[in-house]
Amino acid sequence: MGIIMKTQNKYYKLIPAAALFIGLPLLLWSLGDFPRKSILKEFLSLLTILAFCFMLAQFYFTRHNKYFAKGREFAMVVKLHRYFGFIFIAVLVLHPFFIVLPRFFEAGVDPGDAFVTLITEFDSLGVMLGLIAYGIMILLFVTTFFRNKFNLHYRIGRMLHGYLSVLFIVAGAWHVVNIGRHTSTPFSIYIILMALSGIIHLFLTYFFESKKELSHG
């Protein structure tokens, strides 16, 4: 009994986050006037949409979020941030391939040729933003995963992570708003709001934390 209570205590705080970063996007997706395609295509689309929303959510799943202040929650959030990061970066790494994947199963242009066209469309702002966001995302992953190998001071590492995240989310959100096939006006507003507030949250944390640390010093 006690154990169950504890579990509830630990995870119930995630419900609002789930509503904001899973429920709301799903709602926008289901209400939007989007063409409904095959199950495979819809699945890949949803996976990509949710992956990006989870990247937005990452700005809140941080050890500095006072909402998760207690020790056990703190540990959970740190863990979730890491897991979500790795899982959904993996999805986003693959998402350009998701676009051409269904071509293996239906008539039309060769998926390989389609992919080459897709990633070499340098005239397109949306594609360029995507490539930039993609590059930053890889950098984020590498600097985080191999953090110890780089021998960075903890604070510098954290700063680097934070600033890369901001760059990533700016380029990524812009890419999505510009080119996303499910980017309706409500979706755009949602993405911009979430990205902005995420960035603000990050800067506020850094600002106040730095002050605090200074005052301690």
């Binding site: 897709l118 469309e121 005239d123 594609v127 096939r181 980017t183």
Partner: peptide, 12 residues
């Protein structure tokens, strides 16, 4: 032809 969404502007 009713909708184009996710266009990358390649002109194909």
């Amino acid at each position: 032809i009713s909708k184009i969404s996710g266009c990358i502007g390649c002109g194909t």
